[in-house]
């Protein structure tokens, strides 16, 4: 299915890496919005933490010229999503608005999708999610609490899309550009994260994706993501010289 085949909406995100300061406001906003279990110390140490959006930090150079580069990464909602064809039970599929959706009550936990995803943005629930009783008060009733044994990932806050769409319908108009925002884009203080409708040529994200700094992650895999990145600007970079960064 191509973009043009979708209905009036093709939801996507433009991430301006030049504005990302690595503050993690998006990470905690997502955690709160989507009932993601607490990433305890034990889970962090065992690399079993769940974070639908993460901010990766890379070092470049050495002191005194060291630079830290940040890049937020979440499900790329690929048009040619490698996670979709490998699911034996169709628990992950492409919806009519261009998004990669996870059906929790179909998932049987094969984890094939996580293996297929080149972006490593799918997370398996190794344990039953547990919150102390009183903390359950702040769980978001719009979002399912996922049980042990199934896969989860960024949904582009699909419940917010549904709520916003219904409200627009009830008010008798189209969804206004910017009216529906994900939890992460709402929180992002610098507006590095921008959410909107790529099918609307006048939307903010449609205009942003035309920026000459636009690129997609792992373009060589032809996954055709709905998350577009705008490259980091280094005002002192000699144009034509390659940049090198190291992880860790």
């Amino acid at each position: 299915m191509t973009t043009a085949e979708f209905g009036s909406h093709n939801w996507g995100m433009v991430v301006d890496v030049d504005k990302c300061i690595g503050c993690n406001a998006c990470v905690i906003a997502c955690q709160a919005e989507n009932n993601i279990p607490i990433n305890t110390q034990d889970r962090v140490e065992r690399a079993r933490s769940i974070s639908w959006i993460r901010v990766e930090r890379y070092w470049e150079g050495d002191f005194p010229d060291a630079k830290a580069r940040f890049i937020p990464i979440m499900c790329q909602h690929c048009e040619n999503a490698p996670c979709e064809p490998v699911c034996p039970v169709y628990a992950t599929y492409h919806n009519s608005e261009g998004n990669n959706v996870q059906v929790y009550n179909r998932c049987v936990g094969t984890r094939y999708c996580a293996n297929a995803c080149p972006y490593i943005v799918r997370f398996f629930n190794y344990w039953e999610p547990v919150w102390p009783e009183s903390l359950r008060n702040h769980l978001n009733p719009d979002v399912t609490v996922r049980s042990r044994g199934i896969m989860e990932k960024c949904s582009f806050c699909v419940h917010r899309i549904r709520r916003g769409s219904r409200q627009a319908r009830s008010e008798g108009h189209e969804v206004v550009d910017g009216a529906i925002q994900t939890a992460c884009s709402t929180a992002c203080p610098t507006s590095a994260l921008n959410f909107g409708n790529f099918n609307d040529p006048n939307s903010k994200v449609s205009k942003m994706k035309e920026d000459q700094r636009h690129y997609t992650l792992l373009d060589q895999f032809a996954t055709d993501p709905n998350v577009i990145y705008l490259a980091k600007i280094d005002a002192d970079k000699k144009v034509g010289a390659g940049e090198a960064a190291t992880h860790g």
């Binding site: 890496v17 890379y58 890049i71 280094d234 970079k237 144009v239 390659g242 090198a244 960064a245």
Partner: peptide, 14 residues
């Protein structure tokens, strides 16, 4: 070795 794409001023991502 290049996890974050960096451009110079007026340089395109491509």
């Amino acid at each position: 070795g290049v996890p974050v794409l960096v451009v110079g001023v007026d340089e395109t991502a491509h």
